[in-house]
Design a protein around this nucleic acid. Structure first.
Lengths: 247, 247
DNA sequence: CAGTGGTCTAGACCACGGT
DNA sequence: CCGTGGTCTAGACCACTGT
């Protein structure tokens, strides 16, 4: 099995990581124990340098699939680190992963002068305007959250003419070249407000999760300010975390 | 400035990363713009190989401090990625970071046969027992959360004789060699229960954040099951996220 | 074109774990 | 002792960016 195609333009380390990921997954599916060959073995077998092997293994380690023990070897991490941590505010992708059918209903869109707190969050000057996109997200047809997105009008001039029921993240990246890099989220529990309760179809005074999230590009530009309110009877936040690997 | 001490046993890449981190921080504090020298420049200046420079830069990129642009160079990410994501359930360290004085009050400890749901979560067999540690965490003397930790008695036999007001995580790692590797958290909002309200000193029917967290070692052993209830008037969950870097 | 980061090689020595 | 992963070097060629 020539796992590494040297004619391909895909980097060797990427091909090797992919191959190993698949093998680990298959072995797990069959309930088989599988160990990871040593770095030298992998290098020999695939006729690539050890440095390239290490590159591939580093990726898998960061994904939480394997762990290394100096002097002993590399092993498959049996723990259930299945997903990278997602943005704290879950999206279309997240809902799909739970096996639900995601839906989006746009409640309102407008171009407005932002209130001071949002202008500050987005680092806007006087006169700068924002788009407000108010949407209801559903899973299998049932409401799960209300979102209010605020984006500087300058950065994405014709945003409101685009299809807003799809992934906003993807739209920003592909159409406007806005690379989403970091986010800062604040999360708390509060009681639902009457108008929200009606849209979410839950009783008054239900507890909900309230999240504010600020998203930035690598250059440090604030791209989005997002408020959201989540039903807590229907939607749990599930987070899988791996140890952070610094060195 | 010999930023790299070649006599030291500290790896060059680590020293370089540290130096650059400090420079970035200083420059930011002075409001100065600072760009990151090219990889060749850094290699020349510090008399180390380019591979080692890249190792250092990779670390900083994963931390969200810098970003690279092929053909252009490496730049400081101006966004506010200050902290690695912490375990979702914040700890002593997290409270310190907010500038509060953390405190812990042990409410009860016991060795018990676990209820089925906890036995399942910890993958225990019949007859296996667990330690239950029920604690109240405070910040500046004010209650912020109630925690119930469950740990398999086998893994840490004399746990209850240790000092439980300090960091449990640290204790597990240092005394029992239990490397905490991954965690799976489930988070939701609910109304506080009367007994909890009394301990947390909040009104009845206040909304609280409820978290269940399962923690595993790299070998896949479940180490801890943790339930916790957080005041939401006093404690926000703040999460800083960086884009996950796979390649 | 020159300079940047991205990939890759073929070596080397080390610290560590187990025999 | 040997094999493991951890660190490091001195090259090389590539794709991409800007001038």
């Amino acid at each position: 099995m020539p796992a590494i195609n040297k004619q391909s333009r895909i980097p060797y380390y990427f091909q090797l990581a992919d191959t190993l990921r698949q093998q680990i997954k298959d072995a797990a599916a069959r309930g088989r124990a599988m160990s990871v060959p040593s770095e030298n073995e992998l290098a020999d077998k695939h006729q690539i340098s050890r440095a390239t092997v290490r590159h591939a293994l580093d990726i898998l380690e960061r994904e939480g699939l394997i762990y290394k023990a100096r002097g002993k070897g590399t092993f498959i991490a049996k723990a259930r680190a299945k997903y990278e941590l997602t943005w704290l505010v879950p999206t279309t992708e997240d809902i799909l992963r739970r096996g639900w059918k995601p839906g989006t209903q746009t409640i309102s869109t407008q171009r407005i002068a932002p209130v001071p707190s949002i202008a500050t969050a987005l680092e806007l000057g006087n006169g700068d305007e924002v788009f407000e996109i108010h949407r209801l997200r559903t899973a299998d047809g049932e409401p799960i959250c209300l979102q209010w997105s605020y984006l500087p009008a300058q950065l994405c001039p014709d945003l409101l003419e685009q299809n807003l029921t799809a992934s906003l993240t993807q739209l920003l990246e592909e159409r406007y070249g806005l690379r989403l890099w970091t986010a800062r989220s604040i999360l708390r529990a509060r009681l639902v407000q009457p108008a929200e309760a009606k849209l979410l179809q839950i009783p008054r005074n239900s507890p909900v999760i309230y999240i504010e999230q600020n998203t930035f590009t690598p250059e440090g530009h604030a791209v989005e300010f997002l408020k959201s309110v989540w039903r807590s009877d229907r939607y749990d936040f599930v987070v899988n975390l791996s140890r952070s690997l610094t060195a």
